[in-house]
Structures are given as C-alpha cells and as structure tokens.
C-alpha cells in the first residue's frame, strides 16, 4: 500500500528537480490564483499553463486521469444539476427540462478550475517524496508539533492498515459476514474499530519511550538539503509572476482595475 502519489516521485524532470520549497511556494501561488478566477475568458489560459507544467513534469497522463476519477464523480453530479436548474436563459428544451446557459457556463467554470487545480496539486505532491515535502513545509514555518504529528501518522498508517486487514480476515474466518444492518454486525464492526484505536494507543506509549530514549526533542533541525539554486528561485519567480498575471487579468475583466 503506497501513499498513491509517490509512484512517480522518483522520475527525472525539471519539475522533479525543482527545489521543494520553491516548488511549494510557486505552485501554491498558482493554485490559489486559479481558485480566484470567476471569468470564463481566463479559462483557456489556465488550461494552457496547466498543460505546460504537467507536460514538463513527465508524469504519465493515465496516472492523472486515474487520480481525477474519484473526485470527478462529485463534480460531474454538478454537470447535471447546474445546467438544468441554474439560470434563466434557455438554450435547449428537453421536454419538461431545459438546459440553461448560465448553469452550463457555471459548470464549465467549475469543471475547468477543478481539473487545473487538481492537476497542479498532483504535480506538486507527485514529483517529490512525501517526506521531503513535509520537511520543506516545516522549514517554511509549519509548527513542529504539526510536522511531527504528520510524520508519525504517515508512518503508522500502514501498520494500522495492516492490523485492520488481519483483523478483518480473522473475523471472516470465524464466519463474520458484513451483510445486514443489524445490531450484531454493527457491534462487531465497532469492536473492530475500537481495537484499532486501543492498539494504536498502546503502541504510542512504546513509540514515545523509543523516541525519548534516542533523544527526541534535542535536535536542532538543519535545512541544508533545501539550499536553493538560482534555477529554483528563477522558476519560482516565474510561476509567481504568472499567478499574479492571472489575478490581474481577472481583476481587469471584472472592471476592478484598468480602463
């Protein structure tokens, strides 16, 4: 069981080689700039920029599609709801229902934003080992408590998942079938969940002891591995400029700035 996005984290591409801190700042800026967009005329530029970054990252396209599938279901639900119920300008009439222009365009906006933002997120987290990304966020100021919690949780998710599988197998071997919604089934599943919690709780005491035995809390963390090269900073600046460009374009189109 892998964290899913790590499958292609070891490839080689300019994006993979981009310094993690700069990548974080740059792509985050772009992602939030995209979230700001409400004007449809900006969408083509969004698609182009996203496609370019994705292409440079050399991540496989089928990989991206597989990652978009699950969350895409929810968004596609909107594909039905919005065009049929939102807006007043009717484009096509299908019997009692009507496809409305505003709804259709609203959906288009959501859909493109969704795909672009998710693609950039996958590029951001799929082109470096997850661990390195966490350390980078810590070096950027994330609370050490949160960073430590994240690293420990990440590490032990696999163990708990293993426990779950083993316990489920044991239950099945004793004839348990989770078919009906009844008290016995619920109770067995509650016991299963409860056991996971208790085991993790007990394990955490031993982990804590192991940590303090090796000096937990005494380290002065060095961030040498994140020393930035000129290329890293230039790439980051470039992406931030693009992000700002998008924000300005949106503001201009809204009539907030410019002539």
């Amino acid at each position: 069981m892998d964290i899913g996005l790590e499958t292609y984290a070891k490839l080689d591409s300019p994006v993979h080689r981009w310094g993690v801190r700069q990548k974080l700042i740059g792509l985050a800026a772009l992602i939030f700039a995209f979230a700001f967009i409400q004007d449809l005329r900006v969408l083509p530029a969004m698609i182009v920029v996203t496609a370019i970054i994705f292409a440079i990252s050399r991540l496989p396209f089928p990989f991206l599609v597989s990652r978009l599938r699950y969350p895409g279901i929810f968004v596609l639900a909107l594909a039905v709801v919005l065009p049929l119920f939102s807006g007043t300008t009717i484009l096509v009439s299908l019997g009692p229902l009507a496809v409305r222009q505003e709804g259709l365009l609203a959906f288009l906006l959501i859909f493109v934003k969704f795909v672009c933002i998710l693609t950039l997120s996958i590029v951001l987290f799929g082109t470096a080992p997850f661990l390195k990304t966490i350390k980078a966020t810590r070096s950027l100021g994330l609370s050490p408590i949160l960073a430590d919690m994240m690293l420990l949780s990440y590490r032990y998710i696999y163990e708990v998942a293993n426990d779950l599988t083993k316990m489920q197998t044991a239950m099945r071997l004793r004839g348990f079938r989770a078919h009906g919604f009844n008290k016995r089934t619920l109770n067995s599943l509650a016991t299963l969940a409860g056991s996971l919690l208790v085991r993790s709780y007990e394990r955490s005491e031993r982990v804590y002891q192991a940590m303090i035995l090796r000096g937990y809390g005494r380290a002065k963390i060095s961030y040498e591995e994140f020393k930035a090269g000129t290329a890293d900073i230039m790439a980051m600046t470039g992406v931030i400029v693009v992000a700002v460009g998008f924000v300005l374009a949106e503001l201009f189109l809204r009539g907030v700035i410019g002539g």
Binding site: I157, V160, F181, L192, A193, L196, S200, Y201, E205, V207
Partner: peptide
Amino acid sequence: PQAGIPKAALLTSAFFVASWIHIP
C-alpha cells in the same frame, strides 16, 4: 507537550484507517 504527540499522531492514523470500515 511532546508526550501527547505520539499518542495523538497514532490515534490520527487509527481514525484514518477506521473510517475505511464499510458499514453495510
């Protein structure tokens, strides 16, 4: 404060995994 971190972290993992349990 450090003492609570492993407990909270491992319980986070446990809750994370527990939420995968299918309730029919």
